[in-house]
Design a binder for these strands. Structure first.
Lengths: 193, 193
DNA sequence: TAGCACCATTGATATTTATCAATGGTATTT
DNA sequence: AAATACCATTGATAAATATCAATGGTGCTA
C-alpha cells in the first residue's frame, strides 16, 4: 500500500523506519474506481494525491463544454490543484480516475507537520517542486516551439505508458489539439512523404 | 543596492542583520546596460539573477530565427534558466536587458550554502518555488483557455508595467502571437462591434 | 446475442493565425 | 539636423487548425 510512495521518496532522501511511521500517520489510503472523481470543479482541493497504482487526469471544462486535460498522473506521481490546495479557493479543475486506482491522500496541515517533524522532507519538497517547475517550463517550451507531430512524438517518446493507456482524444486535449487534428497528424508521421 | 532584495525576502521570512550579512557574502552585484546579455544560448547558466532595478527578458530563438519570449523580470523578480542552472547543461535561452539594470547574482553553491546556514531560507525557497509553479500553471491555463484578446487583457490587468515598458512585438511573442496578430487583436478590443 | 456507449477516422468547410510586403511614425545615433 | 534603426499598423494571401457531419469499429452491458 505504501511501497511506491516510500520508494519514490527514498530515491532522494533517506527516511528511517521511525520517520516512515510518522509519515504514515498523515497519509490516508483511498481506492478509486475508474470514472470516479476525487476532485470536482467548485470543490476545494483538500488533498495532495499520490498515485500508488492506476492512472488519473486533471482537466477543466471550457465555456464550450469541452474538456481540457491539464495533467495525467501515473504510479509514483502526485496530482492536485495546487492553487486551490494552498489558497483554499474553490478549484476550477476536475480530477478523475482513468483506471481503478490506489491512492494516498495527505492534506496541507499534514504536509506542513511532516516537513516540521522531518526537516529532510522540506528539502525533498523543495527539490520536488523545483523539478516540477522545470518540467512544466520544458513542456511550455515544447508547446510553443514544436509542431503538432513533434509534440506527439515527444510525448510518445517520454511517456509511452500514457499514450498507451489513455484514449486518444484525451491525449489530443493534453496537447492542445482537437481529436481530429491529432488523428490527421498521426497519419503524417506514419506515412511520411 | 540590496534594498529590494531583502525587502522581498523579509515579506516571507525574517532575517536578522547577521543573517543578511551572511547572505551578502554570496551575492554578486552587477550592472547591466540595455541590450547587454547576461546569458546566451550555449552558455551554462551559472547564476540565478535577482533584479534590483530594471527589466530583463529570457527568450529562445526558433529554427526560423524568430525570438520566443519566455519570461520578463521586473524589479523584485528572479530570472534564470533553472534547468541549466541545476543540471549544468548548456542553456537554450538568452537573457538580456531591456533597460539598464542593477542585478544581484548568486550561484548554485552559494544558494545551497545559504540554505544550509539559514534553514529559514530553505523554507523560503520552497514557498517561492511553489508560487512560481502555481503562477506558471495559471499562465498555462490562460494560454489554452483564453482567446488572444483575453490573454492580452489579462497581462495588461496583472502586469501593466510590463506592457508599458516592453515593445509590443515582445509582448506578442510572450503571448504566443505574431506582432501583426496582436496589433489586430488590440483593435478588436478598443473598437468593439 | 442485441443494443448501446465510446471512440478513431475521414471528408468538407469555416475560422483563426501566420506570412509576406509596404508604409509611416518615433526614437536614437552620428 | 540628418540618417538610421526600430517599431506598429495595415492589406493581401497562405497555411494550420477547428468545426460539423457521417461512418465503422470495439467492447461493455442488459
Amino acid at each position: 500500500m505504501y511501497d511506491v510512495f516510500f520508494k519514490k521518496i527514498n530515491e532522494v532522501i533517506h527516511l528511517t523506519s521511525e520517520e516512515e511511521a510518522i509519515f504514515k500517520n498523515y497519509l490516508m489510503p483511498k481506492k478509486l474506481r475508474k470514472k470516479q472523481f476525487i476532485l470536482q470543479e467548485g470543490d476545494i482541493c483538500k488533498y495532495s494525491i499520490f498515485v500508488e497504482k492506476g492512472l488519473l487526469r486533471s482537466y477543466s471544462v471550457n465555456e464550450k463544454g469541452n474538456d481540457q486535460v491539464v495533467q495525467f498522473a501515473l504510479e509514483g506521481w502526485w496530482i492536485a490543484d495546487l492553487y486551490s490546495f494552498i489558497t483554499g479557493e474553490p478549484s476550477r479543475y476536475n480530477i478523475d480516475a482513468l483506471e481503478d486506482c490506489e491512492l494516498l491522500l495527505i492534506n496541507n496541515d499534514g504536509l506542513k507537520e511532516v516537513r516540521r517533524q522531518i526537516p529532510k522532507f522540506l528539502e525533498f519538497s523543495f527539490l520536488q517542486m523545483q523539478n516540477a517547475y522545470i518540467a512544466l517550463e520544458r513542456r511550455w517550451s515544447h508547446m510553443v516551439t514544436l509542431s503538432t507531430e513533434e509534440r506527439y512524438n515527444k510525448l510518445l517518446d517520454k511517456y509511452p505508458d500514457i499514450v498507451q493507456r489513455v484514449p486518444q482524444h484525451m491525449i489530443a486535449s493534453y496537447l492542445g489539439l482537437t481529436p481530429e487534428t491529432l488523428s490527421r497528424a498521426k497519419k503524417q508521421i506514419t506515412l511520411p512523404k
